[in-house]
Simulated scan of single mutants.
Amino acid sequence: MANTIDGGVLSSINRGGAGTGSAGVGEDLRENFMTLLVTQLKNQDPLNPMENAEMTSQLAQINTVTGIESLNDTLSGITGQIDAGHTLQAAGLIGKGVLVPGDRLLVGEEGATTPFGIELGSSADQVNVSILDGSGQVVRRFELGAMSAGVESFVWDGTLDGGSLAPKGAYRLSVEALADGKQQSFQTLNYAQVIAISTSYKDGPRLDLGGINEPVKMSDIRQIL
């Protein structure tokens, strides 16, 4: 659940028939091998027949090829199932609000604001948040005190430093996270709603956030609200 600040908030990889092609190559290899082996046995010197060890070695080689093909087919099937699972998981997020990397904060009617978040790489003994308007001017500042490493979400009450409601529009977050007076690593997070998914990317499904952010990966989601 978000904290309230009121005074100081897979991918469908196109494998297009790769398994079938691999199986076809393997079958050709096996047929060619057996043809060569039978021919070799028919034409061998009766006084110097093929050694059992030599035949066993050749059979082992073709079995190795067959085993590798079977393993590749199995891995391909497992990967396809994982991809389908990722897509299904992404589809379950449609209509939900999420926090993803970004610094955008929206103010609507009567001071209603979108949540935001901060992700700290390590704990900080003092975290300060500034809200900037479109011209880059600070319109509200908060001192949040100490925060632990991880993600924490907040909601701004929409009031400016002077006490009036912020005008409707887009604002930006600026964060300062200090530990022993030194700046700590952090990531600002903004709110967006998942409106659709796309499976056209090779590295996994992307979530369409309706223009608030560029389409993001599942791994970009820091919190589901």
Rank of each mutant, 00 (worst) to 15 (best):
M1K: 12
A2P: 15
N3H: 12
I5Y: 04
D6Y: 12
V9Q: 05
S12H: 10
R15M: 05
T20H: 04
A23Y: 07
L29D: 01
V38C: 04
Q40S: 15
K42G: 10
K42C: 06
K42T: 02
P46M: 03
L47Q: 14
N48M: 06
A53H: 07
E54H: 02
E54N: 04
E54K: 05
T56K: 14
T56N: 15
Q58T: 00
T64Q: 07
S70G: 06
S70H: 03
D73G: 14
L75C: 08
A84S: 11
G85H: 05
H86I: 09
H86M: 12
G92T: 13
I94L: 00
G95T: 12
G95F: 12
G95Y: 10
K96T: 06
K96Q: 13
G97A: 11
R104P: 04
L105V: 15
G108E: 11
G108S: 11
E109H: 10
E110V: 09
A112E: 13
P115T: 03
G121P: 09
S122C: 07
S123L: 02
D125R: 06
V127A: 04
N128A: 02
S130M: 05
I131Y: 13
G136A: 04
V139R: 01
R141N: 12
F142D: 09
E143S: 15
G150F: 00
V151L: 04
E152A: 13
V155Y: 00
G158E: 04
S164N: 11
P167T: 06
P167K: 06
P167G: 08
K168H: 03
L173V: 10
L178F: 00
A179E: 14
K182T: 12
K182A: 13
S185G: 13
T188N: 06
L189A: 07
A192I: 08
Q193V: 14
V194H: 04
V194S: 08
I195W: 02
I197R: 00
S200C: 01
Y201T: 04
K202G: 00
G204I: 09
G211V: 02
N213Y: 05
N213K: 11
E214L: 02
E214K: 09
D220P: 08
R222I: 08
R222M: 01
Q223K: 02
